[in-house]
Design a binder for these strands. Structure first.
Lengths: 332, 332
DNA sequence: ATTAGCACTCGAAAGGGAAGAGTGCTAACA
DNA sequence: TGTTAGCACTCTTCCCTTTCGAGTGCTAAT
């Protein structure tokens, strides 16, 4: 009970909590002295910490861990919160990316933390159509459309050795052969399966394939969105520019963040402070939840904030949001 | 001479400059007392300021203005800087967006300021091809390709009243009629010119047009890139979280920034502090330069930093970069 | 098991020099 | 008339001390 009060209070105030304050809390009918004894025990067990020898207590990481594992009460979201979330899905057009972007924005707005989302993994989608549109004698744009409506595109120069009509033929054959195969297999199968077939139609097959491949796959697909980075500045624990800088330098490393979010089993996961394994994230908590299409995992939505997060509210929000995303995508 | 020394020194150190320090400078052969007299005059004329009654001097905005207007020496860029810039254009593929993105990154890396770029204005480009690819009975993706290789795409739901074949017909007619017209005219001409023609082919013309239009134009084209926001944190003038927050809240307002950059005549423009008209930018300077294709203005590249910017180096960098961009685009 | 009482600790805030960088002004000098 | 030495004065920064109060741990009593 005391641990719960301390964590709840600390989440609100960001200040160490003293025995007297706890004894005044509703539902607590012990004197400060009793509470001090219990607090000393909780500290010995590792659930609490002091900022200095005569300060009140703050939760340790172990304390937070216990809190999120055993003391998380279901939080009743306000009407307003619920409305703002459902507004995300109130859309005229079927557009995955739009929903993904709106989701990440609403999550950071509602929590005042930084929110990150990993969009549908393009390579898991299947090939719907491949196209090359020639812009001039030497340049063209390649467009790849997946069955999930994702579009990747890329301009490139046409090398002199390859004629426009050859590229066109190549594209036609690829479309015919590879319709509906997973994009992720496109690369390897392009090389193995159709090299021979093409030889008869096209001069310089390998070069053409190489170019097409470069045009289609050389770029990171942009399915990574972030929102509310500046929200961090409002948190009292980051009132020091040094800290802000070290945190921002981590958040800006897109690859690192993608890895952090990608490696996730289905469901919701909370990582507190050092559990994140990254030095610069020692003072941060990361909450991530997956969303899916017909049960098949599509991506991850995550929230990054101080360890002193409003866990129960945040968990409710992120759960509602990820469920709604899954539902909407599946409906579509 | 004294004004120049003060500004040069202040750009380096961010500290008020005293008379003694100036007298020790090479090329100055006057005693501190003489320099104090001159500094008092410069202050009366409005070119210098004091932070408190017995402090050294710092440049005023009028001082900076005079400096950039009359005292900017051509800066010799280091080999390394030049190499890093030319590396941006050393590309296998013709890809405007790629170059634009690389440019904004290199500029913020080289300067440690925040860099923003406005990509080619999509609406000024011409229609190359319009396409609708149906994903399922009720959803499709519309793709618009311009003569400059820009691709806009958007998923949408097909309303029950419109058949897939009608949409296809519509697209065919649009492609035929409007090939090579400026995108910016597409909207109005779609309504006016072909409503009648289509009536005979398609039921429900207006609804179909409305949907197509929504699919193509409802989204802001993303030709806005920013890089190096966190660089601001390294500047000593922003060691206060309050300031950082107010500045970030401005930079994050994309529309506002686009407006700031869009309204630019050809060439390079420097706006110092209050000249920016925006409260939150009082302590910032904005340097913007246009780049073009065959003399036709394409976009703007800009740099945002403290008023105490290394103007001569930065101006050289941004000039070199924007010229290279223009040259590369024109070559392509 | 709980509590009152009390000595003790520590941080935050306020106050007070001392040091030092810099100024403006005056008077002297070339 | 332009330049400079000298000097009193101003203001910031740094450091030390004091005071205040919130909070603790421990002991003894209930």
């Amino acid at each position: 009970m005391i641990l719960q009060v301390i964590i709840d209070e600390f989440i609100q105030s960001a200040q160490p909590i003293g025995s007297r304050a706890i004894s005044k809390k509703e539902g607590i009918s012990y004197s400060p002295a009793t509470i001090r004894n219990e607090m000393a025990d909780l500290e010995e067990l590792g659930y609490l910490e002091k900022t200095h020898s005569s300060s009140g207590r703050i939760p340790s990481e172990k304390g937070y861990r216990f809190y999120v594992d055993h003391m998380l009460l279901p939080f009743h979201l306000s009407e307003k919160d619920q409305k703002l979330i459902s507004a995300v899905f109130d859309y005229e057009y079927v557009d995955f990316e739009q929903v993904v972007q709106k989701s990440v924005e609403v999550l950071s707005d509602l929590t005042n933390y930084t929110s990150i989302i990993l969009g549908p993994e393009v390579f898991e989608a299947r090939l719907k159509q491949l196209q090359i549109i020639q812009l001039s004698k030497t340049s063209a744009v390649a467009i790849l459309v997946t069955n999930k409506g994702h579009v990747e595109h890329r301009s490139f120069t046409i090398p002199a050795e390859i004629s426009g009509s050859d590229l066109e033929k190549l594209v036609n054959i690829l479309n015919e052969k590879f319709y509906n195969i997973p994009i992720i297999q496109l690369h390897s199968r392009m090389q193995v399966e159709i090299g021979n077939i093409l030889n008869s139609y096209i001069t310089n097959v390998n070069l053409a394939l190489k170019y097409l491949h470069g045009a289609l796959f050389s770029q990171q697909p942009d399915n990574y969105y972030m929102s509310g980075m500046t929200n961090m500045l409002l948190q009292p624990e980051f009132n020091d520019v040094e800290k802000v800088h070290s945190i921002y330098s981590i958040i800006e490393k897109e690859d690192l963040m993608i890895n952090l979010l990608r490696a996730t089993e289905q469901g919701l996961k909370i990582s507190i402070g050092q559990e994140n394994k990254i030095d610069e994230m020692q003072d941060l908590s990361l909450i991530k939840a997956t969303y899916s299409l017909s049960g098949e995992q599509l991506g991850t939505i995550a929230l990054l904030g101080p360890k002193r997060m409003d866990y129960s509210r945040v968990v409710s929000l992120i759960n509602l949001l990820s469920n709604q995303m899954s539902k909407t995508f599946t409906d579509w």
